[in-house]
Design a protein around this nucleic acid. Structure first.
Lengths: 206, 206
DNA sequence: ATTATAAGCTAATTTGGATTAGCCGTCAAG
DNA sequence: CTTGACGGCTAATCCAAATTAGCTTATAAT
């Protein structure tokens, strides 16, 4: 990774831990292994570093959205995948979503930074909203909707069902962001959550 | 309210909107209607203002915890209140919880400030965790547990049931914090959530 | 009445941290 | 081989904000 990119990377790490205002350009430089004034060979000023992070994020997120769109259409094409989905597979979906959000380095740092900065900038609030509320809900909603069509799950309100699926995952995620030592316990809870979800919405009632 | 208290109040408002580092003592002073140097007649420095807010918060929260403890014990004494609880009453419980968290001025500002500062200070993360995750879960868990005992709700895992009740409320709350214009829609969703919750866990399956 | 204290003000002062100036070595293109 | 762009450095400089100094007024206690 070249210096210009490493600056973004280290800056993002620091911003996600302390917030923009509490990070000194000297800190960023030190982590990159250069002196503060050298940063200015790459970016006009501190704000420009932040802006570059945001536009990189925009890029990644829109790429990702496209990917989801595609895999979304693909998924609806061979919807019969979901006909015979098992509880284990449902657990896997939830667990993968959770662990991706929690461990993917970029995602995790972006989310934490957005968490800190969301109230200062309406745009950031909107990005957060889309990325961690609206988009997961609509994407998961589509998947679960397929399962409803396939008859694996049953409900007359897919939206609320999706909320019931995703909100606990989201909440556990914010808990682990705040205190990573709770990850193990959260994974157990997550699994129980999905089992219960499956029992509640699955065709067979016990 | 005397000046000393008004300083805390205005500082909290500003901290909850911009975060500690982005608030200037001159801003706080202006809102109080005095000049910045006069603040120092009341507090040693900016940090002391923040600390005073935190210790006031500690106080309020521990008072509140005591209250809940008491009303908790009371509630279990006359547990039969919950025998005949209706769907409307369940909705009211969720709605009241949601609107209290969302509109109570102190609670709302504290929560937003904690949201911003949580990653900088382990103690703040812990307070957030207790206040908006663990305590609501244990308190609501107790209430729902009573309803299970009373036979109104049915589950073999009260903890997960409580998560299913509370996590959507929590998520809608963070959505509204981020964008208050979504409050109306969130209230509708909230109501549907609880109706569905009641159907899922209620004794009568439709 | 006198004085002490509280609480405000204006005018410095201090300071931390971002930014700029200007110099130097390296290396690729001509 | 030489030049110019790139990316680094040290040593200023600048500036916004926190904080301090020191004066003033009001009020309450002696």
């Amino acid at each position: 990774m070249d210096t210009k990119q490493r600056i973004l990377d280290e800056a993002l790490t620091l911003f996600s831990e302390k917030g923009y205002a509490n990070v000194y350009v000297a800190d960023i430089a030190e982590r990159v292994g250069i002196k503060a004034p050298s940063l200015y060979k790459h970016y006009k000023n501190k704000q420009a570093i932040f802006d570059a992070i945001i536009s990189e994020m925009d890029q990644r997120f829109s790429d990702q959205a496209k990917q989801l769109q595609i895999s979304g259409t693909d998924a609806s094409v061979d919807a019969d995948i979901y006909k015979n989905i098992s509880e284990e597979q449902l657990i896997k979906i939830g667990r993968d979503l959770f662990l991706y959000f929690l461990h993917d380095d970029y995602t995790r740092r972006f989310r934490k930074m957005l968490t800190i900065e969301q109230f200062r900038d309406k745009k950031l609030a909107t990005v957060y909203q889309q990325q961690y509320a609206d988009m997961p809900l609509s994407y998961q909603g589509m998947l679960l909707g397929l399962m409803v069509s396939a008859g694996v799950l049953k409900t007359d309100n897919v939206e609320i069902m999706t909320l019931h699926f995703y909100a606990p995952i989201y909440m556990l995620l914010t808990i682990c962001d705040r205190d990573p030592s709770r990850e193990a316990a959260s994974l157990v809870t997550l699994e129980e959550h999905i089992k219960q979800f499956d029992r509640l919405y699955g065709r067979e009632k016990k």
